[in-house]
Design a protein around this nucleic acid. Structure first.
Length: 393
DNA sequence: TCTGGGGTCCTAGGACCC
DNA sequence: TCTGGGGTCCTAGGACCC
């Protein structure tokens, strides 16, 4: 009664194609549209349909800050994320400005993730406003139906618009999402991947930024379809391992890198001075206060650090950094501040004997984070011996 | 126009060890 | 005399993402 298993190809013959992804496994990539703005509109519905910008309000004086999020009405004026706020104010004088409220956005992001858990055991967050959700569905139409339910659910129960890309790999699902914006759904079947990608600029591939784009352009490549006509080894020679992956993707066989381990790898905090700083005393003071801030937030997260780094952004916007690994994980502000000041001093003195640029932005970073699962044993862990002067107060 | 504040991953050279 | 080869850790820098 039992059917024989399908015959393997004879020894020595190459497989005709790489193993196909399981046809019932789909990835839904959810991207919340104009996320910070939409979070604000939940409590300011009267602003809906008007230009709204989340960022440092120009009414509070000149700033070196940038736009964090712009409503689609504001985008019509050329306003977009990362645009200097002063310029955005000039492009779109009628915009309503709202100062960012990150705890509010974090809370909304958690609401969305917990809703997504109704649809999949696995919710892979990629940023505050993006997450991938693997689901099982017998075919593309069934996968689309799940995406429609999620989109409807997020809008009606949380009041947030989302765009969703659907594919059998994460990277194609993400690229599909970008084309679905705003508030759309885009499905790419596995056999459509190469045709879907071919007309898109190489810049549409996650991980291809201005530098990679320029290198490819030098070789006459602007679209993903053109990329597909080159040999992996050729593109690999220009771009390393990443170049080979790009060709595989262009030919319809993207490889999804495994998700990184859970838990943060680093934590940092930085400060851009209102005006560039050229004295060590000012820098030292700022390093101490950043270190204290960072130590406090690590404490709240229950994390220890195994390495410390300091980075300067100079007045010409270039960066230098120095880091040091500790012999053992530490916690608290004192060791962090001490080492950060030492590293900062090294950077500063090297710069003084070289070019003498002033500091625009100062950043203090901790790396090699580990959970503080057990407390350091301290004297307080032992009850005072009777008659001891040690007081519990 | 003059560029924030977070993060992640990759590469490459030197130190060090066997 | 003529100096291997491999593995891992550390550090600095670069590119990219939201």
């Amino acid at each position: 009664m039992s059917t024989p298993p399908p015959a393997d190809p004879p020894e020595g013959l190459p497989r005709l194609a790489p193993p196909a992804p399981r046809p019932d496994r789909w990835v839904l990539y959810i991207d919340l549209d104009a996320f910070y703005v939409e979070c604000e509109l939940r409590s300011r519905p009267e602003l809906r349909g008007t230009p709204v910008i989340v960022g440092p309000p120009p009414s509070e004086g000149p700033t070196r800050g940038v736009v964090l999020s712009a409503s689609y009405e504001a985008r019509k004026f050329g306003v977009r994320s990362a645009l200097p706020a002063t310029l955005a104010a000039r492009l779109c004088p009628s915009a309503s400005w709202i100062a960012p409220d990150f705890p509010k956005y974090e809370a909304a992001s958690r609401e969305v993730r917990s809703l997504l858990h109704h649809y999949s055991d696995e919710v892979i967050p990629f940023s505050i406003d993006e997450a991938a959700v693997p689901v099982e569905a017998p075919n593309a139409d069934a996968a689309r139906a799940i995406a429609e339910r999620i989109q409807h659910d997020v809008r009606t129960t949380l009041g947030l618009p989302a765009s969703i890309g659907v594919a059998t790999t994460r990277v194609i699902a993400k690229m599909a999402t970008d084309l679905a914006k705003p508030a759309g759904i885009r499905v790419v079947r596995p056999e459509e991947v190469a045709a879907f990608a071919a007309p898109l600029p190489v810049r549409a591939i996650p991980g291809v930024g201005p530098k990679t784009d320029a290198i490819l352009r030098q070789h006459g490549i602007t679209t993903i379809g053109e990329l597909a006509t080159h040999r992996p080894g050729e593109v690999g020679a220009w771009l390393g391992g990443f170049g080979r992956e790009l060709v595989a993707l262009a030919r319809g066989a993207p490889s999804d890198a495994p998700e990184s381990d859970e838990g943060p790898r680093s934590r940092s905090t930085d400060r851009t001075f209102a005006e560039d700083v050229g004295t060590w005393a000012e820098i030292e003071t700022a390093i101490h206060s950043l270190a204290a801030e960072l130590a406090h937030s690590l404490e709240k997260e229950g994390l220890r650090y195994g390495a410390v780094g300091v980075a300067f952004r100079w007045s010409d916007f270039s960066r230098s950094q120095r880091s040091r690994t500790l012999s053992a994980a530490q916690e608290g502000a004192a060791p962090l501040g001490e080492l950060a000041v030492r590293l900062g001093r090294e950077l500063w003195e090297a710069e003084q004997s070289a070019r003498g640029r002033a500091v625009r932005t100062l950043s203090v970073r901790t790396e090699r984070l580990t959970e503080r699962t057990q407390r350091q044993v301290s004297l307080d862990d032992f009850p005072p011996a009777s008659g001891s002067a040690h007081s519990a107060l």
